[in-house]
Every structure is written in structure tokens, then in C-alpha cells.
């Protein structure tokens, strides 16, 4: 195909032969990233203002704040949405910059486990504070 060779072809020959398209799961990632970001706007504003209003609070004051049902629920929602949003964002950063598959998947697995651990730890802490008070 001498005529074709002269053109700028975007795909590698192997990619053209295999004929694969996209993995078809990018849309869900895109939607989830937007939904979590929309949810995080009010949650983050609520969290920051709540903290700024309680800078002089002592241990018992903070425990009482977290133990109130509204705070427990909003704080749990905040933590879950925050870590989910974090996973979606950091995943793409790793996929963009870590080029060898072995390193990429190792990093992604380590990241996913770490974020699940931190999110679970936070939720457990909120529940223990809320139910123990």
C-alpha cells in the first residue's frame, strides 16, 4: 500500500489489524467524576465552614459535633464521595504517566487498596465516635 504509507496514519499497524476500539467504559468514569465533583461542592463548603466555626472547640465539643446524626451522615457521605473522586482522578494520572504495564497495574492496585483502607478507617472512626458518645 504505497499510497497509504505516504499518509499520516494515527494507529499503529498492530492496532489496525486487531481492530479494537475503546474499552467502552470511559463514559461511566466521566459521569462518575462529574457527579462526585457536583456532590463535593456543597459537602466541602459545609465541612470547611463547620471546622472554621469550631476552631476553639475542645475534644468533647468535636465528639458531640460528630455524634449528631446530621454530622455523622454528612461526614460519611463526604468521606465516601471524597475518596471515590480521589480514586477516579489519581487513576487517570497514573494511567497517563506510568508507562510500563507492570508498574502501572502495581501502582493502581496499591492506590486502590490504600484508598479503600483510608475510607473504611474514616467511616469506622466516625461511627465509633458517633455510637460511643
Amino acid at each position: 500500500m504505497p499510497a497509504l504509507e505516504k499518509k499520516m496514519i494515527l494507529k499503529e499497524p498492530l492496532a489496525r489489524v486487531k481492530g479494537h476500539g475503546s474499552a467502552k467504559d470511559g463514559v461511566m468514569h466521566w459521569i462518575a467524576q462529574r457527579l462526585t465533583s457536583i456532590a463535593l461542592i456543597p459537602l466541602m463548603i459545609w465541612f470547611v465552614i463547620s471546622l472554621l466555626m469550631r476552631l476553639h472547640e475542645n475534644y468533647h465539643g468535636f465528639v458531640a459535633w460528630i455524634a449528631s446524626p446530621l454530622t455523622s451522615v454528612l461526614l460519611t457521605l463526604f468521606v465516601v464521595t471524597l475518596f471515590y473522586h480521589m480514586w477516579l482522578g489519581l487513576k487517570v494520572v497514573i494511567e497517563d504517566y506510568v508507562s510500563t504495564p507492570m508498574k502501572r497495574y502495581t501502582t493502581l492496585i496499591f492506590l486502590k487498596f490504600s484508598l479503600f483502607f483510608l475510607a473504611t478507617l474514616s467511616i469506622f472512626a466516625i461511627l465509633k465516635i458517633a455510637l460511643g458518645a
Partner: peptide, 8 residues
């Protein structure tokens, strides 16, 4: 996370 765990 540190803040929440410290309160716990």
C-alpha cells in the same frame, strides 16, 4: 483521616 482517628 488523622483528625478523625485521633478523635476516635
Amino acid at each position: 483521616v488523622y483528625f478523625l482517628v485521633s478523635l476516635m
